[in-house]
C-alpha cells in the first residue's frame, strides 16, 4: 500500500472535511446551548411577570420547575459535548477500552439527572395545566411518552452500542487476564 499523488490530494481533502465536521458539530452544540440560554432567562422573566400579575404561587412553582429542567439539560449538554471532544484514540489501549465500556453503558449515573429534569418538566407542565386536565389522564399520557422514549433508547442501545460494549469488555478481560 503506497500513497501516490492522488492519495495525497485525498488527505488534503480529508483535512478540509475534518475541519468542517469539527465546525459543524461545534455549531450544533452552540445552537442548542443558545436555545437553552434564551429559554431559561425568558422563562424566568415570564415567571416573575406572571407571579407579579396573578400572585399565584402555582405559576411560580411551574416556572421554577421548568427553569430547573432547562438548567439541568444545559449542564448535561455541556458534559456530553466535552465527552465527545474528549474521545481520545491515543490513550493506552486498556484505558481507551475502559472508557469506551463506560461510555456505552445503557444507564449511566448522570442519567439520574436527565430523569430528574424530565420529572421537573412533567411537574411544570402539570401545574400549568392544573384544573384543565385530569391528573390521571395527564400522567398516563406523559408516562407513556417517557416509557416509550426509554424503550426506543434501549432498542437503539441494544443494536448499536451493546455489541461495542461487549467487545470492549471482552478485550479488557483478555488484557487484564494472565
Amino acid at each position: 500500500m503506497n500513497l501516490n499523488n492522488q492519495d495525497k490530494i485525498d488527505v488534503n481533502q480529508l483535512i478540509g472535511k475534518l475541519q468542517k465536521s469539527d465546525k459543524n458539530y461545534a455549531d450544533i452544540c452552540k445552537a442548542l446551548k443558545a436555545i437553552y440560554w434564551v429559554l431559561t432567562p425568558l422563562y424566568l422573566i415570564m415567571t416573575i411577570v406572571f407571579y407579579i400579575d396573578t400572585k399565584e404561587i402555582n405559576n411560580m412553582l411551574a416556572g421554577i420547575a421548568m427553569i430547573s429542567c432547562f438548567v439541568i439539560f444545559l449542564v448535561i449538554l455541556n458534559k456530553y459535548q466535552k465527552e465527545y471532544n474528549g474521545v481520545d484514540y491515543s490513550l493506552p489501549t486498556l484505558l481507551m477500552l475502559k472508557k469506551a465500556a463506560e461510555r456505552y453503558q445503557p444507564f449511566r449515573p448522570e442519567s439520574i439527572w436527565a430523569i430528574i429534569a424530565i420529572i421537573l418538566m412533567d411537574i411544570g407542565f402539570y401545574i400549568n395545566s392544573f384544573n384543565k386536565i385530569d391528573f390521571l389522564n395527564f400522567h398516563i399520557y406523559s408516562g407513556s411518552i417517557i416509557i416509550l422514549s426509554i424503550i426506543v433508547g434501549l432498542i437503539i442501545w441494544y443494536n448499536k452500542y451493546k455489541p461495542l460494549r461487549d467487545n470492549a469488555l471482552a478485550s479488557i478481560l483478555e488484557i487484564e487476564g494472565e
Binding site: 480529508l14 471532544n85 484514540y89 491515543s90 493506552p92 481507551m96 477500552l97 467487545n167 478485550s171
Partner: peptide, 30 residues
C-alpha cells in the same frame, strides 16, 4: 487519520510520536 486528527489536541509529547501513532493505529484497529 481521522482518529489522529481527533486525538491531536490531546498530544502533549509525553511519549515518542511514533508510540503515539501506534496507539492510535492499534486502537483504531480494535
Amino acid at each position: 487519520l481521522v482518529n489522529i486528527w481527533k486525538s491531536l489536541d490531546n498530544f502533549r509529547g509525553d511519549s515518542a510520536i511514533s508510540t503515539w501513532v501506534y496507539r492510535v493505529a492499534v486502537n483504531t484497529s480494535l
